[in-house]
Amino acid sequence: MNLMHPTPATPDLGSKLAVKAPILDVHDVTVAYHRKPVLWDVDLTLTEPCLLGIIGPNGAGKSTLIKAMLGLVPLVSGSVRIFGQSVASERKRIGYVPQRESVDWDFPVSVLDVVLMGTYGSLGWFRRPGAGEKAWARQCLDMVGLRDLEGRQIGQLSGGQQQRTFLARAIAQQADLYFMDEPFAGVDAATEGAILALLVQLREQGKTVLVVHHDLRTVPVYFDQLALLNVRLIAAGATRSVFTEENLRKTYGGRLAVLDTLGQAVEAQVRTP
């Protein structure tokens, strides 16, 4: 399926490679709420398109890291560059899936209305979405399997359907770099599979997707890159090399209940080819 308009191929890759700006460059980022640091000196660089999982215990600053990268919370120090530019100048290339709880689902809008909001960025001031935008939004709804529900008020959806609505809105943005805050939270197994398939599809199109994630058992299966966060960045890199018991211990501390699952998760990774 042709998911998105083709991204222009870079001609003469050899000579450009040396000067190619990283997709994402987070440098020395520190964020504090009421003088208490929630992120401390985080460095993260992505040079190749990937599916990056961000894991860590509650209060580790995972959502804050995403919001800091998007310019939604002020940085105490450090900088974020996207495709070598400031975040503000690259907004058209960024897609966002916020946490489901961040909006009022009783708001009087339909599923199609919400997905159309993904096209507002390219529409610009005062222009209303027309037939072209509606057709594109319906295509996005097709991809998440919600086409039949386009007229529903969003409060009448199940949790998984609400999550997929947000995902369709992000796809409608036609971005190159996606930030997703717990897209798998509170969805059933079938929906989780559908969402994952979509993320893989995005990566195959050369896009990069950052995902805040909770379920450690699925980490090695879902993500090729991984960042372990607990206020500081504990480790980041290929999932194969950083998803180790030692790193997990450093990230989650001595919580035994968690560590039990960790052992299983690492074992599972060893078993997967």
Partner: peptide
């Protein structure tokens, strides 16, 4: 009437609006 789309977006999801550059 002029800013209907913009007000709708900001009233529903201000953070998403900000990410989009509004």
């Amino acid at each position: 009437a002029l800013c209907y789309k913009e007000f709708k977006l900001v009233a529903f999801d201000p953070e998403f609006a900000q990410v989009q550059g509004w």
